[in-house]
Write a protein that binds this DNA or RNA. Structure first.
Length: 114
DNA sequence: AGATTGACTGCAT
DNA sequence: CATGCAGCCAATC
């Protein structure tokens, strides 16, 4: 599977590590993580998280704290994922406004654009 | 080795 | 404000 240089971890691992750095009760966007990791784009982050279900480490990655730039949750899985993700965030104390979006000024993690 | 896809984003219409 | 399209680059078939 991953026979690349053992010194450098796969792009996935790098993204997972970054997602794990998200503090409790905070959320961030795909684009922000992509920029923090560097060298990858929002699509890479989404692709990496999508593969989480195939990765063993996915169990400890707070993927629910990663949402899209619109402050909303992206639909994935069979359509249940988004519903589950919202509950997970609310369980952590993340508030959703009437539009179903989160307040980045309140729970946004490194969401500032340079 | 080539084509397809994807939990996104930003701009254009 | 809703919809569409192109760009992004790696993983999978």
């Amino acid at each position: 599977m991953d026979q690349e240089t053992p010194q450098e971890k796969p792009l996935y691992q790098r993204i997972y590590a970054m997602v794990r750095q998200i503090p409790y009760g905070k959320v961030t966007t795909y684009g922000s993580i992509a920029r923090l990791v560097g060298g990858c784009t929002a699509r890479m982050v989404g692709y990496a998280l999508a593969a989480l279900k195939n990765v063993h480490e996915g169990d400890e990655v707070p993927w629910q704290r990663v949402i899209n730039a619109q402050g909303k949750i992206s639909s994935f899985g069979d359509g249940f994922g988004s519903a589950i993700q919202r509950q997970l965030l609310e369980m952590e104390g993340v508030r959703f406004n009437s539009e179903g979006r989160v307040d980045f000024a309140e729970v946004g993690w490194l969401t500032e654009k340079s």
